[in-house]
């Protein structure tokens, strides 16, 4: 029997890792100026593909690759919608989320139902935990120390001026959304690894929470990781404290489940990180 402290630590890792990967995925696109409400749908599609790949092949690597491929396809669709069709970023993101939720639910019943009762092959959880930290290191390095990162930030801050310098915002964002696809794919694959399979709407708003973490982290990689871990910790605590009362009164589990949402609202009220938004968010 593990000690409560160790248990808390493990479940914090379990809850925060998908947020970190999804959050970094949202961060790369937001830093390039593409608002990423659609991260939720990308993670959901990735989870579905991870389950399909894992179940159909029995090989965890295939599951992972399928997830990355699926998330990349959705991410580049998002690129096409915002950059080629020039659709408002929030509208296109919400549209993709609705399609992802509906389509994965249908494809779950039609394609995945035959695997019910078995576990989908997936990489072990510690792989993703290490991956989440390495991804943070990598994103921070690329953003701050490379040409690609500098150009990405420039486009995110002011696409028009970046264009004057000779950059092509549309092309820069294409690459940024490729990174989003990779990271969202990892996040979706991790969800399947956690749950052992796919269930309808299994992201259940984690993409939105990851996006909130990006905002709290002021669109910087390490603070975003910190915010994700904070949310993960709140979730873990909630699990551990379930059924526990507060000052003698019995509290329903929902009260604890509200913690990450309330934390986000409080943080936005207090304006943490809120002023560092890339100035070119949603602009062309």
């Amino acid at each position: 029997m593990a000690s409560p402290a160790l248990q808390l630590l493990t479940s914090t890792a379990i809850f925060s890792a998908p947020l970190v990967l999804g959050g970094l995925g949202a961060l790369t696109s937001e830093r390039s100026g593409v608002i990423n409400i659609g991260i939720e749908g990308k993670m959901l599609f990735a989870a579905w593909a991870a389950a399909l790949g894992g179940w159909a092949s029995g090989n965890p690597i295939v599951g992972l690759l399928a997830a990355v491929l699926a998330a990349t396809v959705i991410s580049q669709a998002h690129w096409a919608l915002t950059q080629a069709f020039r659709i408002d970023h929030v509208i296109s993101g919400m549209g993709l989320n609705a399609i992802a939720a509906g389509a994965t639910s249908m494809l779950n019943k039609s394609v995945l139902s035959r695997f019910a009762g078995t576990r989908a092959a997936a990489l072990p959880l510690p792989f993703f935990w290490v991956g989440a930290v390495l991804a943070t290191v990598a994103v921070a390095y690329v953003l701050n120390q490379t040409r690609g990162g500098l150009r990405l930030s420039a486009v995110g801050h002011d696409p028009e001026k970046a264009r004057q310098v000779g950059l092509k915002p549309v092309a820069v964002r294409f690459r940024a959304l490729l990174a989003t696809g990779l990271l969202a794919g990892l996040a979706g694959s991790l969800l399947v690894s956690n749950a052992g399979g796919f269930t309808d709407n299994m992201t259940s708003g984690r993409g939105y929470i990851a996006l909130a973490a990006v905002i709290l982290g002021g669109w910087r990689p390490w603070p975003t990781l910190a915010a994700c871990v904070l949310f993960g910790f709140a979730d873990a605590l909630q699990l551990q404290l379930q059924g526990t009362g507060l000052w003698g009164a019995a509290l329903p589990p929902e009260a604890w489940q509200c913690l990450p949402y309330v934390a986000t609202l409080v943080a936005l009220m207090a304006k943490w990180g809120g002023t560092k938004a890339p100035a070119g968010l949603g602009r062309f």
Partner: peptide, 15 residues
């Protein structure tokens, strides 16, 4: 074509 959030050096190099 100067991006105010970037440093002077980064602006110089950009592109």
């Amino acid at each position: 074509a100067i991006i105010p959030e970037l440093t002077a050096l980064d602006n110089l190099m950009l592109g």
